[in-house]
Design a protein around this nucleic acid. Sequence first.
RNA 1: GGGUGCGUAGCUCAGUUGGAUAGAGCAACUGCCUUCUAAGCAGUCGGCCACAGGUUCGAAUCCUGUCGCACCCGCCA
Length: 582
Amino acid sequence: MIEKLRDIFTVALIEAFGDELKDFSPLVVPATNPKFGDYQCNAALSLAKVLKKNPRAIAQTIVDTVKLNDSFEPLSIAGAGFVNITIKPEAIAKQIQSVHQDERVGVEKASVQQKIVVDFSSPNIAKEMHVGHLRSTIIGDSIARILEFRGHEVLRLNHVGDWGTQFGMLINYLRTEKPEVLTTANAVDIGDLVTLYKQAKAKFDRDAEFQEQARKEVVKLQNKDSESIKAWQLLCEQSRREFEIIYHLLNIKLTERGESFYNPFLPEIITILETENLLEKNQGANCVFLDGFVNKQGDPLPLIVQKTDGGYNYATTDLAAIRYRVNEDKTDKIIYVTDAGQANHFIQVFQVARKANLAPENVDLVHVSFGLVLGKDGTKIKTRSGETIRLKSLLDEAVNRTKQDLQNRIETEDRQETKEFINQVSQIVGLSAVKYADLSQNRTTDYRFSYEKMLDLKGNTAPYLLYAYVRVQGISRKGNIDLDNLSTEENIIFTDESELVLAKHILQLDYIIKELEKDLLPNRLCLYLFELSQKFNQFYDKCPILQAEEKVKISRLILADLTAKVMKLGLSLLGISVLERM
RNA sequence: GGGUGCGUAGCUCAGUUGGAUAGAGCAACUGCCUUCUAAGCAGUCGGCCACAGGUUCGAAUCCUGUCGCACCCGCCA
């Protein structure tokens, strides 16, 4: 709808003021306030200067020139020169009917379908997943789902940290402290492995000789020493199983392609940089000097692609990954979902990738960054003893708290529910709450983790949204109505303002999803769904459904059913599933 | 020291290419269950959009400076 209006207004602007406005944005946006109508055109205001005319006069000319069909109320001019656009209720009713019969509830597929890599989650082998991985995993999954729904072919890649100095470190440490881990599967559990990792890291940081041995271990690994490779594989296997538990719990699908995958391609990256005349030796390391990055003295800063000892680092791996994804995966776009702290790194890597033509101009490189997860007090989230919180225990706690709440409610309401019901509901509500709390926040800022807030039944939370869906299902149960087989003949009748408001909101979904595809901010979808729930609850409050006379009843059932469909779809794009009862 | 981001109600946060009187939720208080689950709805209270300048018909939004906070800064990822 908004695109159509933009086209119509652009045509009108050209007709009224000439061809030079061909590329001028008609500035048609959703109305800032419902009392101004559904959309508004702000073009008159910004054209005032260019055309040296009174904005209200320009607005009048626009109104006189624009050709709208009978779906719209007559245009009105308000304030300094705003043109307000209102759709007629009959037109809304018609659209609702057509959307109701559409499997995609009115959301179009992208006109150009791309191949897109979404690189997210990316935990490290031999370490447990912690809250830091939560945002990348949840946001990345949601972005992938949104793009998939728009019809793009998405390759979800898990760029796990399965290579590098830390491996040499760990293997070297295990060789003396716990050699059986290197030869036997599951010799210790993952928690102990993490402890050993920390010990190894501590030793690495204070012991120069150990550092040296660790580096040699890396070289052995790189040279495919069979014993080293075996040990490495065992460690990876064990970690992988651990990750799978989390991914299964969160219903996340990912293709693992870790750093080690790009290992064989690292030397050719150096060669390419060399032939492109980008490579420079600096203090023994191979570097590419960057535009726009300078040190204290104002000298350009290098991106190190090959260390003095001949080893490669993550910048090199990222460059090799870009090359592979462009050449082999034939991707049109690569999206990296990582914390904001890596912003600099990606700017640098992207710059080098462009310069070396590893990524041609028509391949988009996008860093989707996000802020830190903070504790309730606003500092980095930690356990009481100062350890980072394991993701598994964090999720378990959310589910347990939900279960507690649910059991209390069942008791006070004197309901009888099975154990299976209680478990299933608390699992879905608890995990959804964690996901929703994260996604409903603008990802670019830090975010405060609070069980109380995310599990609150009121406000912009998963339980509130899920409840709106449950209410619709309740109606269908109570009235013994099959929502999938509602009459398609009946008209939509607006007897109360709340029905029209709900209907208009439902029709905004298409616009929201398209915006989402551009700005990759899932919180905008959350806000939309929250508002949908509110508008539905207002409708539910004011418009009885089952007692209404037949024609009104069907009209309201369609609105309720459509609300549920939008809710289910929207939540699924956030990686959240719905419940029939709760 | 340099870079990036942030600073909006008591708290947690929205604020879409600059647009009309800056919005939610929570908390607090007041109403509404013989009616589809009240896990709801209606309402009241609450703002120097960090501060100071500038650009503009119009600034929370853009520019400059100041203060505060966070993160990053050549051989970790």
